[in-house]
Design a protein around this nucleic acid. Sequence first.
DNA 1: AAGGTAAGATACAAGCGCGTAGCTAAGCAA
DNA 2: TTGCTTAGCTACGCGCTTGTATCTTACCTT
Lengths: 201, 201
Amino acid sequence: MNESRTRRRGEELIKAIHDAALEEVIEVGAGRLTMDGIARRAATPRTTLYRRWADPIDVLLDALYHQHPVEEPTPGADDLRGDLIRALRLMVEWAFSPAGRAVAAILTDPRSVALMSDALFERVFAGRGGTFTRTVLEHYAERGHFPAALLTPVVADIGEALVTKRLIDAAAPPTDEDLAAIVDQAILPAIGLGPSSARGS
Amino acid sequence: MNESRTRRRGEELIKAIHDAALEEVIEVGAGRLTMDGIARRAATPRTTLYRRWADPIDVLLDALYHQHPVEEPTPGADDLRGDLIRALRLMVEWAFSPAGRAVAAILTDPRSVALMSDALFERVFAGRGGTFTRTVLEHYAERGHFPAALLTPVVADIGEALVTKRLIDAAAPPTDEDLAAIVDQAILPAIGLGPSSARGS
DNA sequence: AAGGTAAGATACAAGCGCGTAGCTAAGCAA
DNA sequence: TTGCTTAGCTACGCGCTTGTATCTTACCTT
């Protein structure tokens, strides 16, 4: 009987557990996350979990910490509007990834938030979740496409904020038209590129 | 021993349980909400809860449903900017109320969302949580302060979206200066009232 | 080939939330 | 006052999660 061909160890096992934690939190929520649930999903005894982590949230935060950083938007040619839309689309993709969903689940769980270290918050948020459009906007501001003074913290947040609200309000993911509307009607006017100059299609 | 002077009944008891449910969900999160916890906090036997509700989320949703609708912003004199700031302040106040925090806790809990009826969603959200600035904007658009065509769904969401992001990112509530920045740098430009005409202080 | 490391399979008692049942007694109305 | 309704109290068995302990065995290193 060659059933258990491979017994997972080290990296491989840990990755399986991390994945299980992310899947589990998406399904049951941060509050109902248990060692049992994660272990069952990862098909490993609980003992293995306790050897490394103290509680389910610990596993989850560790899983998030070891996620690959999200892709950075790379401003391309001379297309501010298009780059902004692409940046927002990157954000939407991240939001629908296991990591993105897990972060959403965690953020409103009192216990999880309390245990969330600044380091993780930095890594998951300030580092990426919060600034998709900022990279693009800074790029074009430096090149004089619009006054750099207009690129305030508030303005840098407009796109992400509106997409976030869309994700909360509606079940379906925003279409490219939705993202374009956000860019045209909110971001571009804020940096002085109103309908007069940005009216493309 | 006149300990148990009053035995609560009907309305009074239900309100105590509703309050307990809201407090409980804020403290432990939607996932860890239990009949036991609510009952303990309301100082009533679990039996009483089961007589009316099937599970903890049921209690919580009922509590939210019976909350007083949030105050509507009332556009005042001739002060669009000031009215917008006041509308956002109303939103911040609601967000920090027990009901506001409870809604936040629920929205990312898979089980709760699944049980949330359209009626409740309507009453709690579309009805109020989503549109503080819209009321104000519509008022001034009708009076020709700016082109009504610019008041798109996206534009109506800008203020709420940015405040929401602020609430998620930062622990401290936004100050009036923060709200003013949102109005000046994001909302007003979007309706064609950029720095040239809105530069107040 | 030998030995150390760590995963896998049990098993266990303790604690808690669940849902129900039975009873007592307070509040309210006729 | 009588009697209906309903809150308060206690208790039970069930199942799940917890944290730990013990043993076997696969994998990796030397």
